[in-house]
Structures are given as structure tokens and as C-alpha cells.
Nucleic acid binder design. Sequence first.
DNA 1: CGAAATGATTGCAG
DNA 2: CTGCAATCATTTCG
Length: 283
Amino acid sequence: MLVAEGVAGPEKGGGSAGAAAAAAAAAVGGTASDNSTEHSDYRAKLTQIRHIYHTELEKYEQACNEFTTHVMNLLREQSRTRPISPKEIERMVSIIHRKFSSIQIQLKQSTCEAVMILRSRFLDARRKRRNFSKQATEILNEYFYSHLSNPYPSEEAKEELAKKCSITVAQVSNWFGNKRIRYKKNIGKLQEEANVYAAKTAVTAKNSVAHGSQANSPSTPNSAGSSASYSVPHTGDLYTNMQSINGDSYQGSQVTDNTQSQLGPLDSEDGIPHIGWSIQTQN
DNA sequence: CGAAATGATTGCAG
DNA sequence: CTGCAATCATTTCG
């Protein structure tokens, strides 16, 4: 257990400790490369614990030896007045060693406890999030808005994005989960963002798919100062995607989009259009 | 400081 | 197992 934590291992600099920290990081879900700043704290504390442990252990060992020799001396002294069998000496020594070993076990236990506390605190810190870098969110948004019609990246796409953003696949999934739901919740506000990113990536992906007649340029002329008027991005194509609520077909590029999905909370102030990718069974 | 933004977690459903 | 929705906990912004 302590060995696993790199505490009771060989007392060299930081090899095993580093491994332990890395393992902990992996368990937490970090990339082990970028968030080293957070690990340094953990590692420093682990090192401290290890140092204390070894110091104490050495102290006990030394005390044990001293005590043993002391007892031996006493016995030797006594041997002048009475015969002392080697067996008795052995017995005494073993008793002493047992005693000290129990003390050491206690030390190990308390050390173990300290490590566990440290570890749990470190794991609890998983909520201590760091915002992604500007560039990472840029990349993610780019993908999201260029696949707005079906923002469900495949496993490969997630890996790709994760690599590009220096985050984990799980984080990508989290991000898309959050993004989808928050986008849906707030279409009005995020519209501008959508347009921005759509414009940004207008030429890149997907136009290959849209080779249909309709010009795909989303190009809301941003004229209206207020965000009042927004036309759903739906950069063209395939947002009819699954939405296979039989019948339906799809109503041209115009997005009056009555996909029922009555969002309760948002009062109808502007007839906010709804997004298509609500897969939810909602017949 | 409080509110908004945001990444992570939890519970639920299929 | 994946996604959604609600919620938590932290960070950032005004």
C-alpha cells in the first residue's frame, strides 16, 4: 500500500513518487503533461510524507538497535552473576524487535492515513477545474458550430479534438454535453457566436456536403444592432438528420421550424427557433 | 462582492 | 455505454 504510493519504496529522490503522482493524475483524468502544476503540490506533499516516514523509520530502527545493545550489555553484565543461555538472549532480542516492529507498523499506518488524506484531497480537487485555454475553446466551438446540425462527434473526432486541445476525450465529451444543452437553452444569446464560428469555418468543412443549390453562407448580416433578429445558422444542409418523426420532411432552408419541442421556460418573446437535434423521444 | 460562465459530477433513461 | 438534465464548485467578469 505504501509501496504503491511510493512512500515506502527506496528512498531516492522522486522516482517512485513521480510514478505515484502520475498514476493519481491518470486516475483523475489529467493529461499528465500539462497540469503538472497541480501535481507538483501533490508530489511535494507526498515527498514530504515520505521523508517524514523514512526519518521516523530510521529513528526507530536506530533506537531499536541502541536498545538492543543496551539490553545485551545488561545481560552480559548479569551473566557474571548468573548463567544466561543464548536462548534467553535470543528471546529478549526478539521481544525487543517485536515491540519496535509494532511501533513501526503504527508509523506505517499513520503514514498511510496521511497519504490517503492527501490523495482524497487531491481527488476532491477534481472539481477544481481550470478553464480550457482560449485556443481549446476556439477549436471546440469551431467544431460545434460547423456541425451544429449534428453536434455529436464520433469517437475518432473526439480523440482528434482532444489531441488538438490538449484535453482528454472525456473532457471533450463533457464539453459537448454542456455545450449542446446550454446552446439549446440559450439559442438567442449564442446565435452571434454561432454566426461568428460559422463564418470562421465557412470554407473549411462540410461545404462538400452542401454542394446542393442553396448557397450555404449563413451570413446573417449582423445588421440589427440588437440580437433581436436572428436567423438560425443551420449552415445549409442536413439538419433534418434523424429527426425522423415520420412525415415531416423538412421545411426548406427557412427555419420557422416548428419542431414542437415546447421549451417551457423561454417565453415566446421572439419565437425563438428550436434546434433540430433533439433526439429525445418525444414523439 | 454577487452574478454569470464554465468544467465536472450525478442521476436517470434506453 | 452515451446523452441529457440538473446540480455542484470554481473561475471570471462587472
